[in-house]
Design a protein around this nucleic acid. Sequence first.
DNA 1: TAGTCTTGCACAAACGATTGTGCAAAGGTA
DNA 2: TACCTTTGCACAATCGTTTGTGCAAGACTA
Lengths: 335, 335
Amino acid sequence: MNISELAEELNLSPTTVSRALSGQGEKYRVSRATVQRVLAAAEKHRVVPDALGAGLQRGRMGMVGLLVPDITNSFFSSLARSIELELRSDGFSVQLCDSAEDPEVEVELIEQIVKRRLDGLILAPVGRLSDRFVEAMTAAPFPVVMVDRILPELDLPLVSLDNAAAGRLAVKHLLDCGHRKIACLRGNRASYTDRERYRGVEEVLLREGLPTGGPLVCGDGYTRQSGIEGARKILGTVDLPEAVICLNGQGILGILEVASELNLDIPGDISVVAFDEQPWSALVSPPLTTIEQPVQEIATRAVELMKDQQGRGPGKSGHTVVEARIRIRESVAHR
Amino acid sequence: MNISELAEELNLSPTTVSRALSGQGEKYRVSRATVQRVLAAAEKHRVVPDALGAGLQRGRMGMVGLLVPDITNSFFSSLARSIELELRSDGFSVQLCDSAEDPEVEVELIEQIVKRRLDGLILAPVGRLSDRFVEAMTAAPFPVVMVDRILPELDLPLVSLDNAAAGRLAVKHLLDCGHRKIACLRGNRASYTDRERYRGVEEVLLREGLPTGGPLVCGDGYTRQSGIEGARKILGTVDLPEAVICLNGQGILGILEVASELNLDIPGDISVVAFDEQPWSALVSPPLTTIEQPVQEIATRAVELMKDQQGRGPGKSGHTVVEARIRIRESVAHR
DNA sequence: TAGTCTTGCACAAACGATTGTGCAAAGGTA
DNA sequence: TACCTTTGCACAATCGTTTGTGCAAGACTA
């Protein structure tokens, strides 16, 4: 039963029913009595205004897209949860899309979202820029905000970690603990995020006159498999590095798996600092020293940026940078 | 730019443009030439039919809701990923809702979804039945399928694990390994899922004349915190059980945390079998013996059931039962 | 030439709401 | 009684599509 049928039953116009139901009764001088009557009948017949009709009229559906590269990654699932919660409290619902780290899929999804005329998009890109991507993005008739794997070339509002600082944070801890020969397991090198983190790491290393590059740097990709392959190279050499920094959350799965395969002791044989705090970070043996992102804060800021831009197309600028912190546990030895 | 404006520019009617754009040109005898002209212009001006208008007209938005109690739980995030993928390939998009294990929130979300006139709902309920829940559910003008935490009272199409069998599977492995005094860390006891798993466990225990109940059974809830509390009771006693079965994925976080707190060795001091395979299950020390659900299969079946019911309201029956398997690793000692 | 097909498109009515405005009836004032 | 306000609601347009049907003009046939 829709609003018009209900109106008929009550001998009212759809107009009046709509106003009663949407709480605009006061504003449009619908009598208290009538409002009550409508409310009661609506309750009885389980009538709720159809969001499609309303959305069409209002030009907005109250829904924003959330596009992540891997909802299975606990960073993104935490982010999704926080974002969904924030948005819901603002009356939005969220459409979830998972690009599975595939740039092709990602573009298709964006085009889909554009078609659906959502009210916005919170986008954690795979990290690789294509023409079609840029095109789809600039065609978006709604605000877009990027998080995490930002694409700085795009000049969209975004919230991201100070990745270089986070990289420095990781190395510094290792240096403080007396490590000199430090390896790095990278994520997708095409992504700005990975480049920045690595830049931070390298910067400190270079400044200290420590070795870097070459066999000390492995990995390329955000999957567990790429983590394993990278880890094999780093951990499989004869002269093991003293420590390894894992620049992304999936990679650490590879490191732990390979270390166990090779019977390497952490931190006895090699120390580890891993990006991204995960539910199990403290539970493995040894408990991992991690670089933790303020997920909640990222979510909050992203949603704020989104709301700031409501009504407009994809906006300009509005960078928000958040800081990582280190959780020191036991995966780093003192030398 | 919308379809009508495009039509005007081309000196055509919106009708014709719509038909060209939706590939119905053939059916309605729009000339090939015109179709091409429309397609080209649409491409040029980046015109895509508004999904809201179309959805309103067609009476369906091509979107199904996915309501889970905790997207942060890796079982649900895996499930979400698989479901989103399946649905997308069928032309649906998914609206994500996270009830945070809160029955109140859950009902509100369902009511939301009903309002939005989605084309379906895949629901992993919190597990507690309320009147308002039943009411909201039966009011749904679209097919609903339940997964995981099913509510058998509701007689909706559903796909779930053979939970009792899974419970038996866990105990039997423990028995095979020589354990007799077996504890159980339960999830939310109000949920059918937990009751069934426990029923399976108890059934075998009783049949073997082994002790059960009392202090051997702890825990109530699906949060990490409830896991910790339950684990404290089980692991904190003077006469430790020989083994513990953890009936849900969050609980194991509690067990590992408390075991480490108490300096208990697994499986030296106590053996562990845990429900739900997680990305890190093999990476903790010791690698966990787990009961694994066929996530992919659950997703596929759920989507199939959903599609079978398309166009109707919430359907009846259509139970699908899938089987768990055990992944034997090293968290169970042989006595 | 007249009649019948075919081709190619347009008309108009939905779909289900929202919103500015108009218009009676009731109430108040002089 | 005559006029002005207020109160309470309805009219009608609008949002952007889709879809059954109607209707001309051209092509054929006889």
